[in-house]
């Protein structure tokens, strides 16, 4: 994998919420064409890291490089327009707007031509969204909302897709379908994906490489399969959690 160019490089990044240190010097790499997952318990700082990559809150120390450019201190909308799209934790779709309006807002970061092609592509990935085109986002089921959040992120034609807990609050069968689409997105379109998950089993099974975050620090890293087989991981994150 390391033959592929480095797309995202996080170096010794620290982040604070007021006086509370949420990230204590996190370093990790994402290479082009990879699925990299970050697992960890509640409150380990996983979502904070994703938000910090997007500049909100900005990193207090360390550097974040995207495609070789320093984005540590950049404004969120500029970072996003460089090609980093996020499907945020809790999905955060626009509830009173229709599915297609949600998707059109997703095009903000992209060039304006070829919107129809982008729509065709995401409807191909998530056919159910096409059936729901004119339905309000808030009336979708949880799984459909998650699909909409991912599709909305893809409408900006990102080079790196950040997914924050896409399995949150979803039925196991829906989780499997969404992870299936994430895998396909990577294989068929070569999308680079950085996936943050509590559902360690699914995430590690899907990912090329993985990192484990605890108390704001990276405590382990390795290949997805390697981490999945590791005794300590099994004890800490997979005990009884194999779906």
């Amino acid at each position: 994998m390391s033959a592929a160019p480095l797309l995202l490089s996080v170096r010794a990044v620290e982040a604070f919420y007021g006086p509370v240190r949420a990230l204590g010097g996190v370093s990790l790499d994402v290479f082009e064409g990879e699925i990299v997952t970050l697992i960890g318990a509640n409150g380990a700082g996983k979502s904070t890291l994703l938000m910090t990559i997007c500049g909100n809150p900005a990193a207090a120390a360390g550097t974040i490089l995207f495609d070789g450019a320093d984005i540590t201190a950049e404004a969120t909308h500029r970072i996003v327009r460089r090609g980093i799209a996020q499907s945020p934790e809790g999905r955060r779709i626009f509830p009173h707007m229709t599915v297609i309006e949600n998707l059109l807002i997703g095009t903000t970061a992209a060039a304006t031509d070829g919107v129809e092609d982008d729509l065709a592509r995401v409807f191909d990935l998530f056919p159910v969204l096409k059936e729901r085109t004119h339905q309000r986002g808030g009336t979708l089921s949880g799984g459909e909302q998650q699909m909409l959040a991912i599709a909305r992120a893809l409408m900006g034609r990102p080079r790196l897709l950040l997914l924050d807990e896409p399995s949150l609050g979803l039925a196991p069968i829906v989780v499997r379908r969404i992870f299936g689409v994430i895998g396909e997105l990577n294989r068929a379109q070569g999308m680079t994906i950085f996936l943050v998950e509590q559902n360690a089993y699914h995430a590690l099974a899907l990912a090329h490489r993985g990192y484990v975050l605890a108390n704001g620090e990276i405590v382990m890293q390795g290949t997805g399969a390697g981490l999945l087989a590791d005794e300590r991981i099994r004890a800490a994150y997979l005990e009884g959690g194999i779906a």
């Binding site: 996003v80 327009r81 799209a85 955060r92 626009f94 707007m97 309006e101 807002i105 095009t107 903000t108």
Partner: peptide, 24 residues
């Protein structure tokens, strides 16, 4: 127009709107 849709997106969820590249 995109600007009108951006207003509504910001009303609905400012954090999500920023994460999609809207300049608040």
């Amino acid at each position: 127009l995109p600007v009108g849709r951006a207003w509504e997106a910001l009303r609905e969820d400012e954090i999500a709107a920023r994460a999609l590249g809207l300049n608040p």
